[in-house]
Amino acid sequence: MANDIPSTLALLIDGDNASPKIIAGLLAEIANYGTASVKRVYGDWTKPNLNGWKECLIEHSLQPVQQFSYTSGKNATDGAMIIDAMDLLYTGRFSGFCVVSSDSDFARLAARIREQGVTVYGFGERKTPRPFITACDKFVYFDVLKAPGEEVLATAAAQDEAKAKATKNARDNSLLSMLRNAVVAVSDETGWANLGAVGSHVAKQSPDFDSRNYGFARLSDLVEATAKFELDRSGKAQKGILVRLRPN
């Protein structure tokens, strides 16, 4: 079946705008969406600020792309990434693009790729401007990326504090409103909705929506923590997890 064919992705990284420390977690995240057959890192490799990338390039088979900074104050790296992205887009080989940068200059690129019916996954820092975030189908913040096997070692007190913070986040009014509207929008006549469909509905309006932003590994855990919804995990009729508004 066509749905069983893994997505072929192009990974384009703004080396001037991202740290090599996030690569392991980034690649693990991208593996959830498909296979990155193109993995390029752009920057002026003659400058010392990219020295930290060398070992990372070899370990993860990333291709460095040299782009000299011809004029002070102008980001030539962005231009090189945009040109390459369009060249790759027109090959018709890719079902998705992963653009790694916190720069708003890529907002129009993301929008143009989506106009072609191709999915765009954005990755960046919390300071990333909204125009770039909203131009993507999905946007993931660097700080939620975790490499395989990576564990956060914390004291019992720190764990309790993190849990309390996550619980507080789950009661955020804007979050509750988004989830409530999504459940109503995709529910059937009985009021039950597929949790995956709920998440997809929210993401269409807010590409950076991610349960990890609120301190929860899974959407089901976040929804449950709100105490505003009922969950059915029985998998009835192979529908997966179902959710509905809790009666008042």
Rank of each mutant, 00 (worst) to 15 (best):
A2F: 11
A2E: 11
D4A: 07
P6W: 06
T8L: 07
L9F: 15
L9E: 14
A10F: 03
L11K: 01
I13K: 00
D14H: 06
G15F: 02
S19D: 03
A24S: 13
A31L: 09
S37E: 14
V38L: 08
G43D: 05
L50M: 13
G52M: 04
W53H: 14
E55L: 13
E55C: 10
C56P: 00
I58H: 10
P64W: 04
V65S: 15
V65T: 10
F68C: 12
F68K: 14
G73P: 01
A76V: 10
T77A: 15
A80R: 07
I82N: 02
I82M: 15
I82K: 08
A85I: 05
D87S: 14
L88H: 04
L88D: 08
F94C: 12
C98D: 08
V100D: 00
S101N: 08
D103G: 12
S104G: 04
R108N: 12
R108W: 06
L109V: 10
L109T: 11
L109N: 03
A111M: 09
R112M: 13
R112F: 14
E115R: 14
E115F: 11
Y121M: 15
R126G: 13
T128A: 11
P129I: 02
R130I: 08
C136S: 07
F142V: 11
F142R: 05
F142S: 13
A147I: 05
E150G: 03
L153C: 09
A154I: 06
T155N: 08
A156K: 05
E161A: 05
A162S: 09
A166N: 08
K168R: 13
A170E: 07
D172K: 06
D172F: 08
D172G: 06
S177D: 10
S177F: 12
S177G: 11
L179T: 02
N181Q: 12
E189K: 13
E189V: 10
N194F: 09
N194A: 15
Q205R: 15
D208G: 01
N213Q: 10
Y214C: 03
G215N: 03
R218S: 07
L219I: 07
S220R: 06
D221T: 04
V223D: 02
E224R: 15
K228F: 15
K239Q: 03
R244E: 09
L245G: 09
R246H: 07
